[in-house]
Simulated assay, not measured.
Amino acid sequence: MDHSIQNHPAGHTDHQHPPAGSATVTSWTVAAQATLHCLTGCAIGEVLGMVIGTALGWPALPTVVLAVALAFVFGYALTMRGVLRAGVDGRTALKVALAADTVSIAVMEILDNAVMLAVPGAMEAGLTSWVFWASLAFALLVAFVLTTPVNRWLISRGKGHAVVHAYRHAH
């Protein structure tokens, strides 16, 4: 079954079709929206992982591992929520979420954590420090900016969030 963004049923009203010549702008908009969706799940998982790791007094590595694991969990959960609302069963929704988000979340997590580890003192600053929160905000911004082209490329090939789009409109 082809789940490309171009093969959706006629008559759905979830978004407007672009005027001729604006497909590039729309593809960037769709990619940015998909990236923002992933970023939301990643940010929830990252912050929760950092809070838990810090509260337990863990060093940086296990805290980052927990934060990354939770970023994937929350990213997949947000996607599954929308797909489940479209009437898809749980097993299929999980498969859709894995197909839609794995590459995006992985790229985002690599970038986000690389920035956090590269900013001097960010990981050691702790949750009550502006250095930590400013570094995390900067890391998430970098991850968003650099992951958006990846999502645009995936969507243009009928992958990534194009899979979600197809399920939300086909069922």
Rank of each mutant, 00 (worst) to 15 (best):
M1T: 03
M1S: 06
S4L: 01
I5M: 09
I5K: 03
Q6H: 14
Q6L: 05
Q6M: 03
P9C: 09
G11K: 09
H12Q: 15
D14T: 07
H15S: 06
Q16N: 12
P18I: 03
P18Q: 10
G21P: 00
G21V: 03
T24F: 08
T26D: 14
T26H: 10
S27M: 15
S27R: 09
T29E: 12
V30K: 15
V30W: 13
V30P: 10
A31D: 07
Q33E: 14
A34L: 11
H37C: 13
L39N: 13
C42V: 13
C42E: 02
A43K: 01
G45I: 14
M50F: 11
V51L: 14
I52Y: 01
T54I: 03
T54V: 05
A55T: 15
A55Q: 14
L56G: 06
G57V: 00
W58D: 01
W58V: 13
W58G: 05
P59Y: 00
P59M: 02
P62V: 15
P62L: 15
V64H: 04
V65Y: 08
V65S: 02
L66Y: 09
A67H: 01
V68F: 06
F72D: 07
F72G: 08
Y76G: 03
V83T: 04
L84N: 03
G87V: 02
R91W: 10
R91C: 10
A93R: 06
L94T: 14
V96E: 09
L98N: 14
V103T: 15
I105Y: 12
V107Y: 06
E109T: 13
E109R: 04
E109N: 09
I110L: 14
I110R: 05
A114N: 14
V115D: 06
V115L: 08
L117G: 03
A118Y: 14
V119T: 03
P120A: 01
E124F: 06
G126C: 05
W130G: 13
S135D: 05
A137L: 11
A137T: 12
A139N: 05
L140V: 13
L140T: 02
L141M: 10
F144E: 02
L146C: 06
L146I: 11
T148N: 06
T148E: 12
V150Q: 00
N151T: 04
R152F: 04
R152I: 10
W153M: 08
W153S: 11
I155R: 15
I155S: 12
R157F: 00
G158D: 11
K159V: 08
G160Q: 10
G160I: 10
G160Y: 07
G160N: 07
V163M: 04
V164L: 03
Y167C: 00
H169R: 04
H169N: 08
